[in-house]
Each structure stands twice: as C-alpha cells, then as structure tokens.
Design a protein around this nucleic acid. Sequence first.
DNA 1: GCCGTTTTCGGCCCGACTGTTTTCAGTCG
Length: 577
Amino acid sequence: MDNLGVARIFTNIGDLLEIKGANPFKIRAYRNAADIVGHMAEPIADLGDAEVRALPGIGKDLTAKIRELIDTAALAYYDELRQEFPPTILEMLRLQGVGPKTVAVLYGELGIETLDDLETAATEGRLRTLKGMGPKKEQLLLRSLAEHRRRVGRHLIGHADQVASRVIDYLRADAPETAIFPVGSLRRGCETCGDVDLLAIGTNDQLMARFTSFPEVERILGQGPTRSSVLLRGDVQADLRLVPSESAGAAAQYFTGSKAHNIAVRDRALQRGLKLNEYGLFRVADDHRVAGAFEAEIYAALGLAYVPPELRENRGEIRAAAAGDLPRLIERTDLRGDLHSHTTATDGTADVETMARAARDAGLEYLAITDHSQALAMANGLDEHRALAHARHIREVGERLDGIALLAGIECDIRADGTLDLAEDCLAELDLVIASVHSAFGQDEAQMTDRILCAIESPVVDVVGHPTGRLLLRRDPYKLDIEQVLQAAARTGVAMEINSQVHRLDLSDMHARLALARGVKLVISTDAHAPAGFDLLRWGVTVARRAWAEPIDVLNTQPLEAFRASLRRHRTHSPSA
DNA sequence: GCCGTTTTCGGCCCGACTGTTTTCAGTCG
C-alpha cells in the first residue's frame, strides 16, 4: 500500500471515530498521521519501523498499524470500525454544515445512511423533528446536497496529475520507448478534471493489458486494442488510447480539446478545403494527408501559431494565433519569489530557516514569510507584539542565509467589518501584507464587497490573498462583486493573489484574466505550510497561463528590488492617477 | 492516539458564527 492509501484510511478512521464521539485527541492523532504520510516525499513502505516511529506524531501504535497496512494492504482495526456504520455514511460528512454529530444523529435517529436518504428526509420535512434542527437547517442541507451533486465525479488537478504520473510510470517501466502523456482537461490545466485521459504513441501489443493490470485498478470499464478505460481506487476514471506515430499530433490535438476549441479549429480547416480528425489533417478533395504527426504542423497548416494547451478554450486564442498575437505565457522558471508561506509560528510545519532553504532549493531568489494574524486563534495567529518579534527573527535568518532573501510579511485577516486584524502601524513595519478573509463567509454580496474594498483602501495592504475564498469541490466562493474589487485594486495598486494550493487556485483563471483586463497586477504564491509546498507553484502558473498572463503581469517575476518597488506600500501615487 | 522525561499520567491551539435555543450545541477554520 502506498502513502496515499495509508493516508486515506487514517483519514477515514478519524472521521469514523469522530462520528462515534471518540476522544478528540485520538482523532487528531489519526488525522495528523494521515497528513504526514500523505505528504511524505518517499514511500513509507521503504522505511523501517524505527524510522516510521521517529516521524513526529507517529508512535508505537500507529507504527504497527502502518506496518500492517504496508504488509497486508488491510487493517483489522479499520475493518472493525467500519462494521459499526454503513459504508456510505462518510459521504454525508462532505456536505457543508454537516459534521460528525449531525451524521451520528441522522443515522441513529432516522436511520439515514446515504445522501439520497438525507434528501428524501429533508424534502419531507422530517429533519426538523430532530433536536437542534429546524426549517433553516433543512434548507441549508438541501442546498449543500445540490452543491455536492455538482461536484462528484470531478477531481482536483493536483490529484489527477498524481494519478496520471503513477499510471504513466507504471506503463513506462514496461515500455520505456513508448511516448505516453496526458491529454484532455489535465493537459489544458483545468482546475478540476472529470477523468484522466492518456495518449500513447506507437505500436505496442502489451500496453493495454499492462494498463488494465495497474495495481490501483478497481474495475475495468472497457478494454480494446487501441482504447481502454478503467476505474481506479478513489473513483478516478482513466482512459488510455494508443495511436500510430503518423497520427500522434492529430490525436493529441483532438483529445486535448477543448470541444469548443476543436470545433473552431475544424471549422477553420473546412474553410480551407481541409478536414481535421484524430487521425490527421486531410485535403477534402483527395484525402491527401497534409499533417498529423505533430500538433504544431497541424496548426501551421491552418495558418495558426502553435496554441499552448492552456489556451485551447475558444476564448479568442484562434483569432490571436491567426494574427500572431498569442501571449508569451508565463512559465514556472519566470518566477523569482514566493510571497505567501507559513511557519511553526502559526500553522506551518517547519521553522523559518527550513522553509527558506526549501524555497531556495526550489530555485527561488526570495520568499515572504506571511504567518497568520491573531483572529485565526486556531492557527495560533500572531498579535502585534508577536508579529513584530517574528519579523525580527525572519530578518535575522534572512541575513544569515546565502542564496535566498527573506521578506517579513503577514497574512492579516480582514475582519467581518472590513477592518484589519492588526494595527496599521504594526503592519507598516513589515515588508509585505496580504489581506485575507477567513471568517463570516456567509455575508451577503454587498457586505463582503464592502469588507474587501475597505481592506484594499488601507495603505498598508499590498495583496489580497485567495480573493474569492473558494475551496474547489468543497465550498463555493463567497458572494462578491469582483468587478468592484478589481477596479479598486487597479486604482490603488493592490495586487491580486493566485493561490497555488490545488484546492484553492484562487483567483480562478477567468477572474485572473479579468483582473489583467482591468489593469490589476497578479502575484503567484504557494501558501506553503511545509517545505514541500513550493512545488505547488506550477499550479498557480498553470492558472496564470490559462489567464493569458505574461511574465510582466506577475509581480514576483521581477528581481527582488524591482519587486519591492512595485508593491503598493512603496508606490508614491496611484498607478492610474 | 502522541508526548515528555522535575510528568509513564495528564496534558493536547480556541474563537466566531449559526440556528437553535432560553443558555447552548454544532460547525468551521
């Protein structure tokens, strides 16, 4: 069993224990262990018991359970726990506003086991008969159910990418000469993917059998010589297609999509007496193959510059490609710094120096340490006194280290009334202030908009962090007049963050593109809580690319001094004035 | 569940918000 498998089972144990009403610290121990194992770089199966035992938060008991999982792919304790509840009960925990206590009552009192049961009971008004529930809670649950239904069957891009990598590595081990790569929404960099589409080039009789024997396959949905489809553990569907090399480019183009992009490209082909399908680009008149082996030659044959996959959404890229006006999209290597990170001072897992070294190892020239402010008590947020002491410490460490510059910043909460969580004179002492919303998500649009506008007007705010507050597949964005916020940001020189956490990716691609159109600068940040977190920059870059961003649009592509000068706090007048 | 080691037992981040109450329980971060 791999790390993610272990992590998933520990997470489920934590959830089941919580429904049972077990000791909260025991629950936390399982969740903590799930987090540690799930984020480890090396396979836990490669570690000896002593090394596992040495991991923080993993003691004698959990070591034994991890060993059992690695050796037998099962865990007796987990199986016993699962006997006590129907297997579908954990799904209900995914609903907004439904926690373990509610699940326990729903199951215990009304025998509700599934989301469908819950919907029926809510619709019939039976939930309000329960203690602590009323009509409002019923409506809330129905709304949560509807949101949840929209999300099932989709996966975060980071998750889909890991699945794709594991499948590809497995296939390559047996066929090192065969080119295999992701297509579809994963290649386009969409924030969520419905399934994982893979394309293999060449001839290989064994490939499909190898694919369906991948260890994570739970069910084979279909198997043929050129196309197979499987359902993997964790409900991810993966499709593999095999095409001959003369059709490689056409197939890649066809299966990468999007549908809307492909329709527009094929239309352009027809206008030129050509037809495009997954086998190649052909003259209609005599079926002569004009192109097919490479994507670029197909686009070229249609009078188009090569369109990067992230732009293939039929949002103007074909016109731009025809005119030679495609942007020079930002790349990961254009980024020189990361502007959002946490340490053990609040809810991070590593100290300032460890994070700094990891950022340097990730190729960055500067890093802003931006721990939480006091409102996030649960994260041990900093008050003014601690924030300034922390800033001194960050600067000391920065002085000491070669090859990386540190900025002493903070992620300051925007309180429900729009005021900042720390005094302005304290914030003015820092190098960088990100203002973020972490509470009162239920405010109406006018309140939330005013709240963020209020923060933007503060002269000490440089960046708005994860501006819409969405959690992909979990929580919709809060209600917000983004247009007003962007106009204020443009006027004041406040930058908008693209948060690279795969469950945030906030701003979204569309909002980021709108921001650029309004003259707002972007920053791409990791929000790293651990040394491995800097790898996530690639996803923020992917969003920026989908937003048509060039390096000049993103503040942290600049060298340190130019970057500092571009921050709102160092501007002497508003940029649009 | 883990952890420490002047402790092998007794700690282990807690405040805001909501909807339901009539003094609070559950959820969220």
